[in-house]
Design a protein around this nucleic acid. Structure first.
Length: 254
DNA sequence: AAAAGGACCAACCGCGGACAA
DNA sequence: ATTGTCCGCGGTTGGTCCTTT
């Protein structure tokens, strides 16, 4: 049962990437672009699984990745977005230019969940669960149940929306309209107001508003919208009106 | 100074949706 | 309509570095 592994693992390298492998991957992607991950390793002369190449590129080698500590603004945004979206790291990462889903996930597990745990007393970090596992699952199912999880509908696929940093801007033509307007995505409108679609092609703006290195993340309009959204969400939580809460979440996910 | 434990983070794994044949 | 493949996602693992004892 289950599908076969993405590739034969026989003879393939695993674990830490060497500088040479990084160089091969960077050179290949510079010359041929991203995508076709399955065939990429062979063509690039890498003894790696395509998945591994994609992960390495997405999380580490991509030129637009922002290095360094998470700023307080980003920190705040992550918390807010997580309360709205749950563990949808890729969606959250899409709102934080230069940050990867893996980075945010790690940051959440190692910093934020712990911090929130202190204030709420209801969450536990992955490190803690890992520790519990190491202790031999003494708590059995309880240890699993203690893990925090926001009960939201299953994540929708967003690749076609292309909030990602790699969306093409080369073939844009015709009149523009925001993507959120076209697809009736109020959430997207708030989170990424400059996203445009022209002739069915998504554009995140000539100035790449969603991709810029916003070191200060100084976007007061978005912040206000986010605040309003967050407040509305909190109010619904307080009222315990689950039907309304569901429709609110549905409207976000459209 | 050394051992033990904790924290962090890069990388792996398996699942499921999208899409083509 | 079915099957197989590719890709992206979230959860988890394990290695390394740091801190505490």
């Amino acid at each position: 049962m289950g599908r076969a592994p993405c590739c034969s693992k026989v003879g393939l390298h695993r674990g830490q990437w060497t500088p040479r492998e990084d160089k091969l991957l960077i050179n290949y992607i510079r010359a041929h672009g991203e995508g076709h991950w399955r065939s990429l390793p062979k063509k690039a002369g890498l003894l790696r699984c395509g998945k591994s190449c994609r992960l390495r590129w997405m999380n580490y080698l991509r030129p637009d990745i922002k290095r360094g500590n998470i700023t307080p603004d980003e920190d705040d945004l992550i918390i807010r977005l997580h309360s709205l979206l749950g563990n949808r790291w890729s969606l959250i990462a899409g709102r934080l230019p230069g940050r990867t889903d893996n980075e945010i996930k790690n940051y959440w597990n190692s910093h934020l969940s712990k911090r929130l745990n202190k204030t709420s007393g209801t969450r536990s970090s992955s490190s803690e669960s890992k520790k519990k596992n190491k202790e031999g699952n003494k708590d059995g199912a309880n240890g699993k149940a203690a893990k925090s999880k926001i009960d939201l509908p299953k994540a929708i696929r967003v690749t076609s929306v292309s909030i990602t940093r790699t969306s093409s801007t080369s073939s844009l033509r015709g009149s523009s309209k925001t993507h959120a307007e076209v697809h009736n995505l109020p959430w997207l409108e708030m989170v990424c107001p400059n996203l445009e679609v022209r002739d069915g092609i998504i554009n995140d703006g000539e100035t790449l508003p969603c991709n810029e290195d916003h070191d200060d993340l100084d976007m007061p309009t978005n912040e206000n919208m986010l605040d309003e959204m967050f407040e509305e969400y909190e109010q619904l939580l307080r009222t315990d009106n689950y039907a309304q809460l569901d429709s609110f979440i549905d409207s976000l996910l459209a």
